[in-house]
């Protein structure tokens, strides 16, 4: 589970933006001891902004992205660090910030 906290007044496009030109929120994990088998994004909000005629599919405030991992049968027990990247693009009601890609990491314990 990846907790995210967005500055008040800002939004990021959801993982399924409502316009082809908009940059989706995307989480990817690098190859490691665990395999990502799926993601669960929160329900996107359809928000209307003054700059857009149509509501946009966005995330705001605090939200979480859940990743489902699978441990291979031969996974070595013990602590492991998963690393990945989160790409997002944020705007407020009047301006947009350039897209950013953040390094993310997750400490896990693999137990037999």
């Amino acid at each position: 589970m990846l907790p995210l906290d967005l500055r008040p007044g800002y939004h990021v496009n959801s993982n399924t933006p409502s316009d082809e030109y908009l940059i989706p929120l995307r989480l990817t994990w690098n190859p490691g001891p665990l395999e990502a088998t799926g993601f669960a994004f929160p329900q996107a909000r359809m928000e209307k902004y003054s700059f857009s005629e149509k509501p946009l599919s966005v995330f705001t405030g605090d939200f979480q992205i859940v990743t489902h991992f699978k441990a291979p049968a031969n996974a070595a027990p013990g602590p492991a660090t998963l690393t990945g990247k989160l790409r997002y693009q944020a705007c407020n009601n009047s301006m947009c910030l350039p897209p950013k890609t953040l390094d993310v990491s997750l400490q896990v314990e693999i137990v037999k």
Binding site: P3, D5, A71, A90, L106, V108, E109, I110, V111
Partner: peptide, 19 residues
Amino acid sequence: SRIHVAAASAALALLLASC
């Protein structure tokens, strides 16, 4: 094997806000 999440990426919780 089972997976215990020992620590979610603490830094990340604030990263979006730090733009």
